[in-house]
Write a protein that binds this DNA or RNA. Structure first.
Length: 287
DNA sequence: ACGTTTTCCTGAGCGC
DNA sequence: TGCGCTCAGGAAAACG
């Protein structure tokens, strides 16, 4: 399940293998993969063909590459199971291959593979004059915690003003981007906060600790290539990351808390799961 | 307006 | 062997 560290690993792969190359041909093999490109698959392909890809950028879980001389960018989101793979042209098609980009140099092609089809690619106009050509379509996505321009103080103020709970806030991409279910649980464990804690009651030191926890766990994951539970998350060369073995909370139901030994609990939460230590992360008294 | 719920999707795993 | 059920969950749309 790609969250910020996994998407950053992919971004670095794109920067190395794809940036600077000119697109010769685009094949859309499943229309759902470009469903957010409202003008349709034919327009999508036409806007890419003949264009040279610029440097790879990322905000939260979104990735994009500027298209030379167009004022537009190729924007991608991996969703739950999306992969961007750099493959030799002769490599057999993957089962869930959705989009193929061939390049004018005849070298390795870029493939978007996505089993559950929650992810997708689009071509979107960018803010004129923006050196990074950030697509306007993601203007509502907040800066992520690894972005030097992320505003910690504004984040605290926003939390205090919301009538919601801390885990919902962590997953709200308009407040802080890049955090998904895995890193939310990991950061809350590190900060000793219960997922059901109302954000309006968070003190400034608690927000500071929470942000520090998010940054630490993401940096640690990035250092080992991200979190892979199965073959659904891999880098552009098809390799898994190793952070799953270092997880403290997520997926560790009934296993001992690495701080206090209390069995980790799994609560059903929002049609998904929350993993936490019932001793280190006490449930808030009133809701 | 804002917070909450639903919806989209496929394959693995499991009980019977 | 196979059927039906549950689970995994990002983010936008729909809902209240």
């Amino acid at each position: 399940m790609p969250e910020l560290p996994e998407v950053e690993v992919v971004r670095r792969g794109l920067e190395r293998w794809v940036s600077g190359r000119a697109i010769a041909e685009v094949q859309v093999l499943h229309p759902r993969a470009v469903r957010r490109h409202l003008a349709g698959p034919v327009d999508f392909a036409a806007r890419l063909t003949g264009r040279t890809l610029g440097p790879a950028h990322r905000r939260g879980k979104y990735l994009w590459l500027p298209l030379d001389g167009t004022g537009c960018s190729l924007l991608g989101h991996l969703g739950m199971s999306g992969q961007l793979l750099v493959q030799p042209p002769e490599a057999p098609d993957e089962t869930h291959l959705r989009v193929r980009l061939r390049f004018t140099d005849g070298g390795r092609e870029l493939r978007f593979v996505d089993q559950r089809t929650f992810g997708g690619l689009t071509v979107h106009p960018a803010e004129p004059g923006d050196p990074e050509a950030t697509p306007l379509a993601i203007a509502h996505i907040a800066r992520d915690p690894l972005d030097p321009r992320f505003d910690d103080e504004a984040f605290h103020t926003a939390l205090r003003g919301r009538r919601t709970i801390v885990k919902r806030a962590l997953l709200d991409q308009s407040l802080i981007s890049g955090v998904g279910n895995i890193y939310a649980d990991e950061a809350l464990w590190r900060a000793r906060l219960h997922y059901d804690r109302p954000t309006a009651t968070l003190t400034r030191p608690q927000t500071v600790l929470l942000l520090q926890s998010v940054r630490e766990v993401m940096a640690a994951a990035l250092a080992v290539g991200g979190t892979s539970f199965d073959s659904l998350y891999v880098n552009v060369n098809g390799e898994s990351g190793y952070f799953s073995r270092e997880l403290d909370a997520y997926g560790r139901r009934d296993e001992p808390c690495r701080r206090c030994g209390t069995p980790i609990r799994r609560d059903p939460w929002m049609n998904r799961s929350s993993y936490f230590c019932p001793h280190c992360q006490r449930r808030p008294r009133l809701r």
